[in-house]
């Protein structure tokens, strides 16, 4: 799906937990996330800490979108 958005000419960042699948399907900008049922959260944390975690991940995604890449790149958090 990311590939189709990229093909249309829009830069896209893929935020996902299983980065090997993301690599296999051909996403170019990848940000690894927490877990499959809650990629951008962690129910074990307090509301505040969970929000801070999500903010950190989305910030990384925005950095990925504003970074030039030539090949498939994983932006570790």
């Amino acid at each position: 799906m990311v590939k189709e958005i990229e093909r249309a000419g829009i830069p896209v960042v893929h935020m996902c937990t299983v980065t090997p699948i993301s690599m296999t399907v051909g996403a170019n900008r990848i940000v690894p996330t927490i877990a499959i049922p809650h990629p951008l959260g962690n129910p074990a944390l307090s509301k505040e800490d969970e929000y801070a975690l999500r903010k950190k991940l989305v910030t990384r995604a925005l950095e990925a979108l504003s970074t030039e890449v030539e090949d498939q790149t994983i932006f570790e958090v």
């Binding site: 799906m1 990311v2 590939k3 189709e4 958005i5 093909r7 249309a8 000419g9 829009i10 830069p11 896209v12 960042v13 893929h14 935020m15 996902c16 937990t17 299983v18 993301s22 996403a27 996330t33 499959i36 049922p37 990629p39 951008l40 989305v58 995604a61 979108l65």
Partner: peptide, 26 residues
């Protein structure tokens, strides 16, 4: 099917002037 869906809404995003996409997966 996933490819078809994304190709279709990517065009809508383009027309709406969207500059970038954050795609999340579970």
């Amino acid at each position: 099917s996933a490819k078809k869906f994304a190709a279709e809404y990517a065009q809508k995003l383009l027309q709406a002037g969207v500059n970038a996409v954050i795609m999340t997966s579970t």
